[in-house]
Amino acid sequence: MKLTGNTIFITGGTSGIGRGLAEALHRLGNKVIISGRRTALLEAVTAANPGMASIALDISSLESIERAAKELVANHPDLNVVFNNAGFMPFDDVSGPVDDAVARSLIDTNLLGPIRMTAALIEHLKTKPEATVLYTTSVLAFVPSAGNAIYSATKAALHSFALSQRFQLRNTNVQVQEIAPPWVDTDLIYKSGDPRAMSLPAFIEQTIAKLAGDDPEIIVDAIKPIRDNPGANEHALVHAFNQSIVENPIPVAA
């Protein structure tokens, strides 16, 4: 995608990767509108970035999405980039009973949210000379974390959806790109300074550089070997990956 001159709407733009990319794109001269559920956080981020706008949104609610889409088109008619970034990542143990409420919330937020948000704005995007739909998935879409089983499944499903949508939009002016982060040291899990996690500034810098091209997937160099997983032998890779986590647990908040 082009990196300047856009009007960009970003879900989940008040913290972590969403805020980092929102601020980086804002500095490049784009008009950026962030969203989130908490008004105080939206106000804090926009105050720190003069010229940035915000809109309240509960990405798990179809009604909220439809309201936000109408407001966006009315107030920001030049909107040409929809960046689906909002999500959350709880730990779970699917060797036993699953918390149905958490599972449904994950699916509504991480999978249906981006699908609904894009659907609400896709016809508007088609009216623009150049438009982009962005999805934040995860390296866990390709190699799941057993301790975040449902989260990993939602990201794998979103990756699959992006592949299909990209094909179906092939003859339009709308480009579909997917950002698949590695473990980045943010509050998505627990910001701990763990050396296995990529620093947020390094991730933002590398991702912005790669976004400037037309690659369908934005993959930082550190996770290319995992992205290129060994096909039919992926079971061994997934087992080894998760065994390494069992032996060296990811820190969680107390």
Rank of each mutant, 00 (worst) to 15 (best):
residue 98 V to S: 08
residue 218 I to H: 06
residue 150 I to M: 04
residue 10 I to L: 14
residue 146 A to W: 14
residue 216 P to D: 15
residue 139 V to R: 06
residue 195 P to C: 10
residue 213 G to E: 08
residue 168 Q to A: 10
residue 55 I to H: 00
residue 82 V to P: 00
residue 4 T to G: 00
residue 79 L to Q: 10
residue 133 V to H: 06
residue 200 L to Q: 08
residue 200 L to W: 11
residue 165 Q to P: 00
residue 205 E to V: 03
residue 31 K to N: 13
residue 43 E to F: 03
residue 11 T to Y: 08
residue 109 T to A: 01
residue 38 R to F: 01
residue 109 T to N: 04
residue 74 A to W: 06
residue 5 G to C: 08
residue 116 R to E: 02
residue 240 A to W: 02
residue 191 K to I: 11
residue 191 K to T: 11
residue 141 A to L: 06
residue 151 Y to C: 09
residue 44 A to Q: 15
residue 44 A to T: 12
residue 105 S to Y: 03
residue 7 T to E: 06
residue 207 T to I: 06
residue 244 S to C: 00
residue 211 L to C: 03
residue 176 V to K: 07
residue 171 N to R: 15
residue 68 A to C: 11
residue 54 S to A: 15
residue 51 G to S: 06
residue 130 E to T: 13
residue 74 A to V: 08
residue 40 A to D: 15
residue 115 I to W: 03
residue 59 I to T: 14
residue 121 L to P: 01
residue 67 R to G: 08
residue 49 N to Y: 09
residue 159 H to G: 07
residue 42 L to R: 02
residue 150 I to H: 03
residue 78 D to Q: 14
residue 3 L to Q: 11
residue 151 Y to M: 12
residue 77 P to Y: 13
residue 93 D to G: 01
residue 137 T to K: 04
residue 250 I to T: 14
residue 173 N to A: 09
residue 157 A to G: 11
residue 173 N to M: 04
residue 138 S to Y: 10
residue 26 H to Q: 09
residue 249 P to N: 13
residue 58 D to Y: 08
residue 38 R to E: 05
residue 56 A to E: 15
residue 37 R to P: 00
residue 44 A to I: 03
residue 18 G to A: 11
residue 29 G to K: 10
residue 232 A to N: 10
residue 240 A to T: 10
residue 238 V to A: 13
residue 80 N to T: 05
residue 125 L to D: 01
residue 112 L to S: 04
residue 12 G to I: 06
residue 15 S to L: 05
residue 185 D to F: 09
residue 182 P to C: 07
residue 203 F to K: 00
residue 239 H to V: 09
residue 9 F to W: 15
residue 1 M to G: 14
residue 9 F to N: 00
residue 30 N to F: 02
residue 26 H to W: 11
residue 28 L to N: 01
residue 30 N to R: 02
residue 204 I to D: 04
residue 3 L to K: 06
residue 28 L to E: 05
residue 151 Y to A: 07
residue 234 E to M: 13
residue 198 M to W: 08
residue 99 D to R: 03
residue 62 L to D: 14
residue 22 A to E: 08
residue 69 A to C: 02
residue 57 L to G: 00
residue 216 P to I: 12
residue 82 V to G: 01
residue 180 A to P: 00
residue 213 G to T: 10
residue 207 T to R: 04
residue 59 I to R: 07
residue 115 I to Q: 08
residue 103 A to N: 05
residue 30 N to C: 02
residue 108 D to A: 15
residue 238 V to S: 07
residue 50 P to Y: 13
residue 18 G to F: 10
residue 200 L to A: 07
residue 16 G to Q: 07
residue 151 Y to T: 10
residue 30 N to S: 06
residue 128 K to S: 03
residue 3 L to T: 07
residue 165 Q to N: 02
residue 157 A to W: 12
residue 97 P to V: 12
residue 193 G to P: 10
residue 146 A to R: 12
residue 91 F to L: 12
residue 163 L to P: 00
residue 64 S to D: 14
residue 32 V to T: 02
residue 138 S to G: 10
residue 225 P to E: 14
residue 209 A to V: 08
residue 118 T to S: 14
residue 15 S to R: 15
residue 62 L to W: 05
residue 192 S to V: 11
residue 195 P to D: 13
residue 192 S to G: 12
residue 37 R to I: 04
residue 166 R to V: 08
residue 99 D to C: 04
residue 53 A to W: 01
residue 97 P to F: 13
residue 240 A to R: 06
residue 32 V to K: 04
